[in-house]
Every structure is written in C-alpha cells, then in structure tokens.
Design a protein around this nucleic acid. Structure first.
Length: 220
DNA sequence: GCGACAG
DNA sequence: ATCTTGTCGC
C-alpha cells in the first residue's frame, strides 16, 4: 500500500493550471437528449489509503434502481480543499464507466469552484457526458438565504459570476449547493435535483450511491 | 496575520 | 469523509 505523499506547492500550482484547462472544456449548456436515467456517484473512506467508489443508475421517473456498481480503489492523493478531484476522480470514473446513464450527479461542486473545475466538471469532461454537482456545503462564493419552501433557491456568485444555486430541497432544511458539471444548464441541473429529491435533503441517486459505497466499505 | 475550506 | 445512540428541539 503505497503512502499518500503530500504534494509540494509547485505540484499544486501545476495541478491548478491543469484545472484551468479542464474548466475551458466545460460546456454549461444543455447537450442532453434523453432524460430517462440518472446516476449518483460517491466514495466512502474506511481509513488509510483505500476507499470504495460506487455508482447507481435510477429510472428518472420512478427512481427505481436499475444498475449499480461498487469498486475498491487506492487513494494516491490527500484531501486538499479545491483539489478534491485529484483524490476522488480516478475511483469515481471506474465505478461510473460501468454504469450507463443519461446524466451523473456527484456529491461535490461543479463550476462552484475557485477555478471552475470541481469534481463534477472533471467527471463530466472525462466521461464526455452530462454531470452536475449537488453538495452539502459551500466551497466558494456567496448567496442570499433562499426562501424556506421546497424549490426555492438563490444564485451562488463568486468573483462576479454566477457559479451555481443554493437550493432548498426540503422545507426548512439546510439548502443544497447545486452547480453545473458538464453539458447541462444550471436551470436543468436544478430541475433534476428537485425531481430526484423525495423525503430527504439529498437526491435519491446520491443517497443510493452513498449507501452502496458504505456497504462495500463495511463488508470489504 | 486571521479565518474559510466540496469530501 | 469517519468514529457513534440517544436525544433536545421545532
């Protein structure tokens, strides 16, 4: 089990430039034909340099689980804010490549990232498919407090530009940070998150993927 | 210098 | 993210 080496300042500068290149490839417009299946992607960490990535595809209307996959992955990079993709993309990609879907959602940011290259953007560009980010917390930017009813949202702005939305998925509960990953408009991303959210704060695809990854971790 | 900081 | 059951509050 190779150790996770802490990258140097120079390495991070290099990776930041790589993210800027990824950001240029992101298409923040709807390039999606069908919307019949939605997949959720997540990773669980037991401890150390091993983790479990999972992807689950659900029927867009019924939210029934159609396909799912979980894989064990070696971690090669530490968690460093704004560099999350270098820790999680590889494993997430392996799980997602085995599960076909019209759109993939990730429990992290998309364009709502300092260099507009959150994990959801990296995944979308790598898969060349529509993706969106639906995170529990904020990474950058600011927004007004959205109204308390389900469906209410306010725009998340960073450095003068709209990078996402702060969306209330359940009345009174803390909002979710939604942003475009790739090949989707922010409006469509919000629509998808709301449509796939039922009795919990987070959308079902993410909940299923999280359970799947956690179960794989506990048994593996 | 002092916080903030996806998972 | 993860270690962890019941419990205070709306």
């Amino acid at each position: 089990m190779l150790p996770i080496l802490k990258p140097s300042k120079l390495d991070l500068d290099e990776l930041a430039r790589l993210q800027e290149r990824i950001a240029k490839r992101v298409i923040a417009e709807d390039r999606i034909r069908r919307l019949e299946t939605v997949a959720g992607c997540d990773i669980s960490f037991p401890r150390g340099d091993r983790a479990y990535a999972a992807c689950a595809a659900l029927d867009y209307e019924s939210l029934r689980v159609l396909r799912q996959r979980a894989v064990a992955v070696k971690l090669r990079f530490p968690y460093i804010p704004t560099f999350l993709a270098f820790r999680e993309l590889e494993g997430m990609l392996r799980a997602a490549r085995g599960v076909d879907a019209d759109v993939y959602m990730v429990g992290a940011q998309g364009l709502a990232h300092p260099r507009r290259a959150g994990l959801a953007c990296h995944l979308g560009v790598a898969l060349n498919k529509p993706t969106l980010g639906a995170a529990k917390g904020r990474l950058c930017g600011s927004a007004e407090e959205p109204e308390l009813e389900r469906g209410a949202y306010s725009l998340l702005k960073d450095d003068g530009e709209v990078v996402g939305a702060v969306l209330r998925t359940q009345p009174g509960s803390r909002p979710v940070y939604v942003s475009v990953g790739h090949k989707l408009s922010l409006e469509t991303a919000i629509k998808i998150v709301l449509h796939t959210t039922r009795d919990h704060r987070l959308p079902e695809p993410l909940r299923v993927a999280h359970q799947l990854a956690t179960r794989a971790m506990k048994s593996g």
